[in-house]
Every structure is written in structure tokens, then in C-alpha cells.
Amino acid sequence: MTRPIGLTLAAIAILCSPTAALAASGVERLYILNCGEGTTSDVSRWTPGMNEGKPMDFVDSCYLIKHAQGWFLWDTGISDAVASMPNGLVPADPKATVWRRPKTLAAQLDQLGVKPADLKGMAVSHTHPDHTGNVEMFPSTMLYVQKAEYEWPGTNSEPRFKPSHPVTLLTGDLDVFGDGSLIILSTPGHTPGHQSLLVKLPKTGAVVLSGDAVHFKENWENRRVPAMNVSKDQTTASMQKLADTLTKERAQLWINHDKAQRDGQKLAPEFYD
């Protein structure tokens, strides 16, 4: 009997070791959710001095991440209410983007069996409405946002989130779960407190979710800064920070609004692990 007992004790020791604990932590999978589809009649807003009058299609992605410690949502997309608008959300500025909502965020979460109360945490890349449209679908979920973004006055100096929403204000990068697998990166420039997300997946490897630090591949490759960004210098510095992160982590860059890239990706209920 001594040998089987010895093996059992050894197995227990292995399971209780720090190495085993590390293996049981981390990001397990990532779902790409369709959080809006849009069209602009003039892409030159994003490429100053170029592409005058050229139309372009955009997408808007949200990302649901399953971590060993719980679910985490990155960005919430265009408001689900837009799904019921026959002509989409038409802006006052004719050069801005007309957004549509083919699938609601609520329906996609329901398909995956995830309830709003299941979220351990959430974050938005920034506070433009195509990224914050459904924040209040999760009224009790901790929201991670840069302090500079949170305090940035909204329309008519109104707050950008409900004061009752739980929030953790950041002043830089944050290792969300403390294990290096999900790291919020401070990347200001598009807005005062813009942020991106580094996700380390066990099989896919490292992925950086851009937010609007860059809008599409051509802008990334040429380091073009949209005219509406609050700071050209900060935007350029943030692009360099992302480039350095990609090199260091051997990561892929997933550009939030780039339709050509997203058309080649797996969308929920498929996932990346």
C-alpha cells in the first residue's frame, strides 16, 4: 500500500504547487462580438489630406474574454437600441459614420449563456458612443477607465458615465487579474484617456486590441492621425508603444474598426483560445 499512497501524495503535491496554480490561471478564450457595422461617405476625416469624398465601411467589435477568475468585457459597441432603427443611427454630420446594429450585444451574450451579472469586470477603450453604447447593461460590473477619460467633460459638460456605476480609475497600465494575461495599456491621443488591451491566449498567443489608437491597417502602416484626435503627438507615441508591445510580446494587432481584418476572423460563438 505504501507505493500507491506515495504516488497519491506526490500527485497532490504537484497539484498544489505554484506551477500548477499558474497553469490554472490566465485567459482561457476570447470571443469577438459584432457590436456594429457602419459606413462613412468621406474617409478623409481619418486620413487628413487624403481620400477626399471616398466612402468606406467600418465594423465595431466588442470582445468577451473568459479568464480563470471570471468573464471580462472589452468595449460595449453601438447601443442595442440602434438594432430597431430601419435606417441605422444617422449622424448630423454627413461625413460621419452611419451605424447599424445587425446583432444586439444582449442576444450574443445570451447565445453564449453569459448573463450581465456574470461579468467579473469590464473596460472601454474610450468614451465615444460606438464604444460605450451598452455600458449600463452591466450596472453592477466594475468598469476600468483612465482617470483622464473619466474626467473629460462630455456634451454640455455632462459626466460620461452614470455616477452610480462602480468604477476603478487608472493612471496608466493595469494588470487586471495580476497574472500578466490581461493588461490594459494606456494609449492616449485619440481621446485624453484612451486605452488598449493586451490579451495572452494559451494557443493563439498574444493579441493587442487597438481600440481607436488606430482605425484601420493603412493608418497603422503610415502612422496617420485622424483630424478629430485630441493630440497628434500622444497618438504617435501611443502607436509606438503598441509597436513596441507587439515586438516584445510577439503579438498580433487586432484593429477594432478594420473591416477587412475582421472579415477574416472567427466571430462568436466561435472563439480563440
Rank of each mutant, 00 (worst) to 15 (best):
M1N: 14
R3V: 14
I5N: 08
L7A: 14
A11N: 11
S17M: 04
A20S: 15
A21T: 11
L22M: 09
A23D: 06
A24C: 08
A24W: 12
R29K: 14
L30S: 09
Y31D: 02
L33N: 00
C35G: 12
E37N: 09
G38Y: 02
S41F: 10
V43H: 11
T47R: 11
K54S: 11
V59S: 11
D60M: 13
S61M: 14
C62R: 00
Y63A: 09
Y63M: 11
A68G: 06
A68P: 03
G77Q: 02
G77W: 08
S79N: 09
S84K: 15
P86N: 12
N87A: 15
N87R: 15
G88E: 00
G88C: 08
K95W: 05
P102Y: 06
D110G: 11
Q111W: 04
K115H: 14
K115Y: 13
P116W: 10
A117R: 14
K120A: 15
T127G: 05
M137T: 11
P139F: 00
S140C: 05
Y144N: 10
Y144P: 05
E151D: 14
E151Y: 12
W152A: 13
N156I: 04
P159C: 02
F161N: 07
H165D: 02
G172A: 08
F177V: 09
D179T: 03
D179Y: 02
D179P: 01
S181Q: 11
I183P: 03
L185S: 07
T187I: 06
P188Y: 07
P188C: 04
G189T: 04
K200A: 01
K203A: 10
T204I: 05
G205I: 02
A206C: 09
G211E: 01
K217W: 09
N219D: 13
R223N: 12
P226C: 10
N229Y: 15
N229L: 09
S231M: 09
T236H: 00
A237R: 10
K241T: 08
L242N: 03
D244F: 07
T247M: 07
A251S: 05
Q252Y: 06
A260P: 00
